[in-house]
């Protein structure tokens, strides 16, 4: 009996036990591969993010360093501040103006450009070309088109004897004007993504449906849209986030005016931090925006993804 008992002990004793260094070999290799992106993300994403959250609990001095801890006072101040509430409202309106209209327009163009016609490549290039124009450059072009006296739009209205519109100077029109130019700027990207999605749909599905006698709109409703749903879901998410973060066109076209009507949150953060040097409240706004986008995206995933048919 004793020999039988002693055997397992011998085995354990002779078995080679790898050290921590050896056992973590795979993990270390993995980290090594991830290192470049970890460094980049840390410097440009994680550190600023945590710094922002930290600063949102402080009053800051001119250099932007934390001076007095105030807890949630910055947030309380924001929620009482009519200027911030106005910003939030303007941002929400801006999202509502740009996202649905922009996606419908891109979808329409993508459906047109997906037809097999001679020279369709030309239209595909044109429709996606706004992707290649920077926000700054296109904003300047739109600035001229919106110009009250020499702008294209007012000239056009004058042709038909309509009253002139102060596109960027009238508080009622300014947000709409910026929204129009933003839709134009975003169309190229959305168009390209949606066209790619459309081209991925198996041509045989349409042929089979044609043999069954399905008309264009029936095919659109029962084949194209369901098959495109993953792409639509992606582009809606991206557009929503982009719309919440709009900055460049505001800075060039209106600078948040007139009468704060286009003072979207990101622009308001910029003003608060780098014009008024109020880094504390600016950080609180940034955190607030972050939470808004987070909630919007989570809601979208919860309710939107149910209707998405992944292959």
């Amino acid at each position: 009996m004793s020999t039988i008992h002693s055997r397992p002990d011998e085995f354990i004793a002779t078995e080679h036990k790898p050290g921590v260094w050896e056992r973590s070999r795979r993990a270390r290799t993995a980290i090594l591969y991830l290192l470049p992106s970890i460094i980049l993300f840390s410097v440009f994403v994680f550190y600023p993010m945590f710094r922002t959250i930290y600063l949102s609990f402080f009053l800051t001095d001119q250099a932007g360093d934390a001076a007095v801890f105030v807890g949630l006072d910055n947030y309380k101040y924001l929620l009482d501040s009519p200027a911030f509430l106005n910003s939030a409202k303007a941002t929400l309106l801006f999202v509502l103006y740009t996202v649905p209209a922009g996606i419908l327009l891109s979808l329409f163009l993508a459906l047109l450009a997906n037809e097999k016609l001679r020279g369709i490549g030309f239209f595909r290039t044109i429709y996606s070309s706004t992707m290649g124009v920077s926000v700054a450059a296109s904003s300047v072009v739109w600035l001229f088109m919106f110009h009250p006296s020499i702008g294209m739009f007012n000239r056009f209205l004058a042709l038909f004897d309509f009253p002139q519109i102060q596109w960027l100077l009238d508080p009622q029109w300014a947000l709409v004007s910026v929204a129009i130019s933003t839709i134009w700027m975003n169309t190229g990207f959305s168009f390209l993504i949606l066209l790619g999605g459309l081209q991925n749909i198996d041509e045989h599905l349409y042929e089979s449906a044609r043999i069954d006698g399905a008309g264009y709109f029936y095919r659109l409703r029962r084949i194209t849209l369901p098959m495109l749903s993953p792409t639509l879901f992606f582009i809606i998410t991206i557009s929503l986030i982009n719309a919440f973060q709009t900055f460049g066109q505001i800075d060039i076209l209106t600078k948040g005016g007139p009468a704060q009507s286009t003072n979207l949150i990101v622009y308001s953060i910029y003003r608060e931090a780098f014009v008024n040097y109020q880094f504390g409240t600016a950080s609180a706004q940034a955190v607030f925006l972050f939470l808004c986008i987070l909630v919007a995206t989570i809601l979208q995933f919860r309710f939107g993804e149910r209707r998405v048919h992944y292959q």
Binding site: D202, L205, E207, R222, I223, M227, S229, H309, Q311
Partner: peptide
């Protein structure tokens, strides 16, 4: 040939 079934 590829059946062309509607995946959704």
């Amino acid at each position: 040939q590829n059946y062309a079934l509607y995946p959704h």
